[in-house]
Amino acid sequence: MSYLSIEGLQVGYGEKVIVPDLTLGIPQGKITALIGPNGCGKSTLLKAMARILTPQRGKVRLQGEDVHRMDSRQLARQLALLPQASITPDGVSVAELVGYGRAPWRSRWGRLSREDSTIVQQSLAQVGLTEFADQPAAALSGGQRQRAWIAMILAQQTDLVLLDEPTTWLDIAHQIELLKLMRSLNLAGKTIVVVLHDLNQACRYCDELVVLKQGQLQQQGSPAEVFTAELVRQVFDLDAKIYPDPVSDTPTLVPM
């Protein structure tokens, strides 16, 4: 049994089925990228894992337990989500935003304990935002803001982290910074599942690729095993050549 297993999952929005019948397993301690063309169901799958969407059929099991039957707070201690469209509210400091990551651990009254505050400080330090702690979160730049949200997820102290297109609004330097941060979280012991659009980044910064097309699993495995010109043509309908990346030796796509 895998760490996170998807069993006969059917999920979609209302009447519309995006993922008809999917079974796969996500390994523990690795970075797994969900890739595929627009509308292939990668974000939908991630949302089903995070319980944002309820499956029409099938199950998502985390270490054997059905996540859709678990208590919200209990689940939030094991699984964190960085949503694609996050709202940074006005009039809340960076430290307060990161403190919301402690929500599943706080008492019902919602006060931060001393231990919570220490964890918030550590999380801020880990993403390099310590000096911004007391500034309003809404005033941060795009890259800083994304790091503040990562810090919030760190403060949540979960073993599993789901990231929904975390690089979308960032320039290239901040994208790479975020992907490196993702690797350092993984080295600290977290299992990560991430939806990525950039295939070269997925190959370079992830251990495992899950390739989806029209809600079906096409391939799963390490980039070196599965990322071929044949796969790119089949899944993205794109003629391309695959070369080894000169820096990391991982596969790199060059379109024809």
């Binding site: 995070a50 919200s72 707070r73 939030a76 201690r77 989500l81 960085l82 469209a85 599943p104």
Partner: peptide, 8 residues
């Protein structure tokens, strides 16, 4: 989505 992810 974020609220649900934080256990609310």
């Amino acid at each position: 989505e974020a609220a649900e992810g934080l256990g609310a």
